[in-house]
Nucleic acid binder design. Structure first.
Lengths: 111, 111
DNA sequence: CGTTTTACCTAAGACTCCAATGTATTGAAC
DNA sequence: GTTCAATACATTGGAGTCTTAGGTAAAACG
């Protein structure tokens, strides 16, 4: 489990990248995917996930598709064209930030 | 210049590491050091720096030394023993977070 | 002598995320 | 067949971090 502070600013990037890779996903699916990809180290709470999804939708980066699964309605999120063109930018921003951080901290990445 | 959101949670780590490397520094010196190490990409504002320094001091990670430079008082910050033992932990937390992020984003570090 | 740089600081607000809570369906265990 | 865990959506209040904007003043530079 990570210091929650570090997550700030990365949640949108995570969501957008997952949707770019997987086409469309619903909220709960995103939480499970993040959990498995991170080996349980990163757990998205609903209190952060849903407001972020709604915000990205309001900004026009995501659109939604409601699908009835029996009596339950599942809400899929998918990238809009705008959202799609934003993903790589977000990834680049993240990588550039990491690079800068390594410079400032004067450490070398252990890869 | 980076998306300011990404910086969140990293400011303490930056300050502690700089002090670990440089012994003691004063506020303004820290802003200049960060600016030069990051090639101007990371600029600490005073509104975030000073409250963070004061908080770290209140938590017992930093202590201060006031030095008169003529009529001006310069306030040096240095690591306490507790602060010193915290630095490597913060760095490790940061590195672990980056590693997790690369897994979740399913990208490889470009180093 | 005026402007830039140095040097400290605070306060109001925005923004992001978390914890807690609420609702309801589905599937597995017993 | 009922209870519990997992699935699935969501909101609200609050904590924490940073930014914007402001305030004060000395030293250096032109």
């Amino acid at each position: 489990m990570h210091s929650p502070e570090l997550l700030k600013g990365t949640l949108q990037t995570i969501i957008l990248k997952l949707l770019a890779d997987n086409g469309k996903m619903y909220g709960y699916e995103i939480t499970q995917k993040v959990k498995s990809l991170s080996d349980g180290k990163l757990v998205l709470t609903e209190g952060s996930l849903y407001p972020t999804l709604h915000k990205l939708e309001a900004e026009g980066l995501l659109s939604t598709e409601k699908v009835s699964m029996g009596k339950r309605i599942r809400k899929y999120y998918l990238l809009t064209p705008v959202g799609n063109s934003t993903v790589s930018q977000k990834i680049e921003d993240f990588e550039a930030f990491i690079s800068t951080m390594f410079n400032v901290l004067q450490i070398k990445p252990a890869y």
